[in-house]
């Protein structure tokens, strides 16, 4: 099992750090796409199968909240979980993000563990990438 990840942040450094933390944390990442703002993020979604999105809020051209609300209107995108990673952390902004469909919220600066934990909470898998409710032995039938 592995996940395709999309990272949306206008800072190149922040995208690199998120990507680095993801790969170091043992998170099972298959492909990793990145985008500099919401519009670019949506363009990636048009072409690529994405399982989870990590997105900033404050970005030029299209911010993260607008990207979330556009995603909601498309049946193919509306169920892709989005974790917001933002410096903005007022209660109202956090609520706004959740109301727009975000499944998690990480405040910058963050520790690798914060990211890892939120990812697993949102995807419903434990630290080893296994589903919490997997029964023993169910995998021995996999080829």
């Amino acid at each position: 099992m592995s996940f395709n990840v999309l990272i949306v942040d206008d800072s190149f450094s922040m995208r690199s750090v998120i990507k680095k933390v993801l790969s170091l944390s043992g998170f099972r990442m298959d492909r990793c796409f990145d985008a500099g703002n919401g519009r670019e993020g949506l363009a990636v979604l048009e072409k690529e199968w994405v399982d989870i999105i990590l997105s900033d809020i404050n970005m030029p051209e299209m911010n993260g909240l607008e990207m979330l609300s556009r995603m909601k209107q498309n049946p193919v995108y509306q169920n892709i979980p989005v974790i917001v990673i933002s410096t903005e952390g007022s209660e109202e902004r956090v609520n706004e993000a959740f109301c727009n469909g975000a499944k998690g919220f990480i405040k910058k600066p963050f520790l690798p563990e914060d990211l890892k934990r939120t990812l697993h909470d949102v995807l419903g898998v434990d630290a080893d990438g296994n589903y919490a409710d997997d029964q023993k032995g169910s995998n021995d039938l996999d080829f």
């Binding site: 800072s11 450094s13 922040m14 410096t87 952390g89 007022s90």
Partner: peptide
């Protein structure tokens, strides 16, 4: 890019620690 991200994070952290119930536009 790193230096901009630093001021962005310090600004955000400062404002929300100072008062998380208020909304600041950054």
């Amino acid at each position: 890019d790193c230096a901009k991200e630093a001021v962005n994070m310090i600004g955000g952290q400062f404002l929300r620690t100072f008062d998380a119930s208020k909304v600041f536009n950054m």
